[in-house]
Every structure is written in C-alpha cells, then in structure tokens.
C-alpha cells in the first residue's frame, strides 16, 4: 500500500511537470525580442504598442510595424533577419500572450494609463530592462492584487467596475 501511495505522489508530480512543461513550451515567442535595446535606441512603448492610450488593449506589434525600422539591417543579429523573412513570406507574428484577463474581466489600458496616469511598469514591472522575451508574468494578476491597488489608490472596488 505504501508503494502505491508513493506511486500516486510520483504520478501527480509527473502530471504537473508535464503541464508546466507544456505551459512554458507554449511561451516560445516567434522572435527573441529585446526590450532593452529598443528602449536604449529611443523607441517609445507606444510606437510598438499603439493602442494603450485609446483602447482597452495595448496592441501587439506585427511585422508591418517592425518593418518600418527594420527594412534594411540595423544590426548583425540573426533574429532581425527573421522580420524580413516573415515580411517577405507575408506571414504574421503569433505572439504568445503572457498577460491576459479572463472574459469576465473588463480591463482597459486607457482607463489605467490615461485616466489614472499609471506607468506601464506599475503592472508590467521593469519590462524595458528585459533582454529576452518573458517566460512568465512579472506579477500574477489576481483579483486580490487588483483590489489592493484599487483600495490604495481609492479607485472603486464595486464588482461592476471590472466584471461584465
């Protein structure tokens, strides 16, 4: 019986290893994007994420945006060549999302960035320092985390403010 229980534990652990492996492997991004270099080159967040001041979502950059600067090689990085390859083949980037709210949460970037005058890093952390794509979120965006900030900033915690 003891052995059976040991087996049970091993089994459960195996499952979670598989799931974890599955999740992280999904986070392979189509491009090894380096936020830091771009920031240092003077590129503003809004140039690649064009909508966070006007819409609920910030917008993920696609080939058409990247190619504006990378039409001709800027560096020797082989990753950069990928952009032109994608562009030539008419393909688009399928970024894996790291931060994603469930359907029943109404989150608006504009509300937070424009109206509440928050910075990107308040929720996304020091993303501009990152040299490689993130594999997991900087912060786990739980309801508790949202509500604590709302309390601190005296924003409403009425359920209807976020849940639709």
């Amino acid at each position: 019986m003891r052995l059976f229980l040991i087996g049970l534990v091993i089994g459960v652990i195996l499952v979670f290893i598989f799931i974890n492996f599955g999740l992280t492997s999904r986070l392979n991004q189509p491009l090894l994007f380096n936020h830091k270099i771009h920031k240092e080159a003077g590129v503003e967040c809004i140039q690649c994420h064009p909508f966070f001041k006007e819409q609920r979502f910030s917008g993920m950059p696609n080939v058409t945006i990247c190619i504006e600067c990378h039409k001709d090689p800027v560096t020797q990085n082989p990753e950069e060549e990928k952009i032109r390859e994608f562009y030539k083949k008419g393909k688009v980037f399928r970024w894996n999302r790291i931060y994603e709210q469930p359907d029943h949460v109404f989150f608006s970037h504009r509300r937070h960035v424009v109206l509440a005058k928050m910075d990107c890093k308040d929720c996304h952390g020091p993303i501009e320092e990152s040299e490689k794509p993130l594999t997991k979120a900087w912060v786990k965006m739980t309801m508790k985390w949202c509500m604590e900030c709302h309390t601190k900033k005296k924003a409403s915690n009425d359920c209807l403010v976020c849940h639709i």
Binding site: G7, L8, G11, V12, L14, V15
Partner: peptide, 20 residues
C-alpha cells in the same frame, strides 16, 4: 511491488490530470 507502484502512478496521473 512494481505493479503496485505503477498502478499508483497511473491513478495519480489520472487524478492530477482530471483536476487540471
């Protein structure tokens, strides 16, 4: 014993997977 353990692992995977 080996079979016992194997059975345990099987049930573990089933339970864990089910929960997930």
């Amino acid at each position: 014993d080996f079979l016992k353990m194997g059975g345990g692992i099987g049930v573990g995977i089933a339970l864990g997977g089910g929960f997930w």
